[in-house]
Every structure is written in structure tokens, then in C-alpha cells.
Amino acid sequence: MNEKIITYIKDELSIEFIESIDMDEDLLGNGIVDSLGMMKLVVFLENEFQVTINPEDMTVENFNSVRSISTYLSKPQI
């Protein structure tokens, strides 16, 4: 899952070419993804992992890094 997310961010969303993304890197703060990219990421995650992401869950805690995204997705859906 992590690899898929990282590959998608690197290939489709990153504002410019980057070699690697750290699991704990601040995706928004370090400028890897912009706000449009965040919207695209949500659509990607929903399609790729067959989940529904509640807008309420789109928080810094859940989306700040690849690790936080995958932790969030691994939680049982309510």
C-alpha cells in the first residue's frame, strides 16, 4: 500500500521531480503536494483501495504523511 501511494504521489502529484519520499515527510508543508493534488490523491485512494473517505476525516492527523495516510486507511471503516 505504501509503495502504491508513494509511486502515485511521485509520478502524478509532485510539483516537481523528486527522487524519494520519506514515510514521515510532511507532504503539504514541504510542498510535495499542493491543495489540488490533495483532492486528486483522495480520488486515487478511494478508487485504488475501494474506500470512501469522509471529508471529516481529511485532517492533518490523517493526511500529513504517507505513514499517516496508510494508518488511516488500515483502520476499520465506520
Binding site: L27, G31, D57, T59, V60
Partner: peptide
């Protein structure tokens, strides 16, 4: 407000 908060409205409003 840090960048991540400005881009994630649920966190921003809280």
C-alpha cells in the same frame, strides 16, 4: 497557520 492546515479544511476550522 501551517501549510497543511490551510489545505485541509477540517483541521483548519478546528
Amino acid at each position: 497557520f501551517p501549510d497543511s492546515y490551510v489545505k485541509l479544511p477540517a483541521s483548519l476550522s478546528a
